[in-house]
Amino acid sequence: MIPVAFDYQKAKTVDEAIAALSNGNSKILAGGHSLLPAMKLRMSQPSKLVDISSISALKGIKEEDGEIVIGAATTHADIASEKLIKNKLSIFAEGASMIGDVQVRNHGTIGGSLAHADPAGDWPALVLAVDATIEAQGKNGKRRIKATEFFTGLFSTALQENEIIIAIRVPIPPEGTKATYQKFSQPASRFAIVGCAVVRFPDGKTNIAFTGISDNAFRADNAEAALSAVIFLSDHYASAEYRKHLAKVYLKKALQAVV
């Protein structure tokens, strides 16, 4: 399968990428592991791709002012194996290592996954559960968007046109915090049919987030009320009824793992 013809530009800086996006139907290319399959099926037909994978400012993981800051173009594999993540934000290592397969993890990026906002994506539930903020940059400068305000619908986010995610910022959970990501995977792609992320802070406050079960990932700290309001997805992998059942099973598994 061959995509419709398009132009291609490898950006060296974020400013160059933002400028390059401004003309016509251009799109960012990060790991390409959601975009290229869609382009091969011709479901997506951008006229130009702006490749951000060589922008070094968008890659890597660091600690800054009590936060872990992950560059948007950091791959799932690099997050899963990074010491800082394993030590201080282990739920991200756990979640990242469950995405797709090794080849997918070697190329797919956290920023690409969040921007794509696949209803079955894993990162959306993970960033919601840890109270992350998503840092974006556009023509009018930088801004920070709370994860809880980021996912607005099926494949839709709060990003404005031509805005690029540059980093994901996570407050380092206090010592004694327990967290887990439990997922029931679609057996071929390993996308989440149900994914449940739970973070339990030492004071007992518990963040709960779901992915895979509705149009977009969401926080469900009051799980019982939240689940009764959900319009469950139904497709050839799982009916709405089955997803509802699985959501409860995976919530229970996750809660048992953190108490």
């Binding site: 291609y8 490898k10 390409g32 592991h33 399959p37 490749d51 397969d101 080849q103 190329h107 792609s189």
Partner: peptide, 24 residues
């Protein structure tokens, strides 16, 4: 992107070459 028959190494990393552009 499902079967892995196209797997090669790009800069040492296993990669599905059907899901990457030559220009990348």
């Amino acid at each position: 992107s499902g079967c892995g028959a196209c797997t090669i190494h790009v800069n040492g990393k296993a990669t599905k070459s059907c899901t990457m552009l030559a220009v990348q």
